[in-house]
Design a protein around this nucleic acid. Structure first.
Length: 180
DNA sequence: CCCTGATTCGC
DNA sequence: GCGAATCAGG
């Protein structure tokens, strides 16, 4: 898999969103986290944090790399490497999505008679790894189905859902209380 | 051990 | 330019 313009753009976006190299590698597919890190450095967008730079590594690992056994050492193929990488169970955004059942009553005003009447705009169909602090974390579909995704519309600051899904959440909560 | 990014250097 | 191997660390 090569670094097409599209893949580079996605890399830049995800890196700017704060995803780790391995998360980005899983997202892109066909590349290792080392490949992602290497590309990030070549693109010179490594800093990201602007936070304290800790301490610069003393340079010069000067690793005694294998002198010449390369040709005779098959080692892992790309597919093996990808398959052996454990899928991250969550990220900061995903964790938010998993515990998003708080104080729903305060999220939105009661506008609709039932959740079925709420109209939610077209979602951006984001994957878990594409979520960030400002994306709607409303899950759509069967988590075990390949088409599972998240709404991904703008959720504003400090709220887990976009406006439409906040109202859906509210109304579902109301419906649940009624039927109880 | 799990993970993170950083670096080197054969290709 | 690419990325595995490796390092250094949380």
């Amino acid at each position: 898999m090569s670094w097409t313009d599209e893949r580079v753009e996605l890399l830049k976006k995800l890196w700017a969103d704060g995803l780790s190299a391995s998360q980005i590698a899983n997202q892109l597919g066909g590349v290792s986290r080392n490949a992602v890190i290497g590309k990030v450095h070549r693109l010179k967008l490594s800093s990201r944090g602007r936070a304290s730079q800790k301490q610069a590594r003393p340079k010069k690992p000067s690793a005694p790399r294998q002198p010449t056994v390369r040709s005779a050492a098959p080692r892992a193929s790309v597919s093996n490497v990808v398959a052996s990488q454990s899928m991250p169970r969550t990220n900061s955004a995903g964790a938010t999505a998993l515990k998003a059942d708080y104080a729903i009553d305060e999220v939105a005003e009661p506008i609709y008679q039932s959740a079925a009447e709420v109209v939610v705009p077209m979602s951006r169909r984001l994957s878990l790894l594409e979520l960030n602090e400002r994306t709607c974390k409303w899950p759509i579909g069967d988590p075990l189905h390949e088409d599972f995704h998240f709404c991904g519309n703008d959720s504003g600051e400090g709220t887990p859902y976009c406006k439409g899904h906040a109202q859906v959440a509210y109304q579902q909560n109301v419906d649940r209380k009624r039927s109880r």
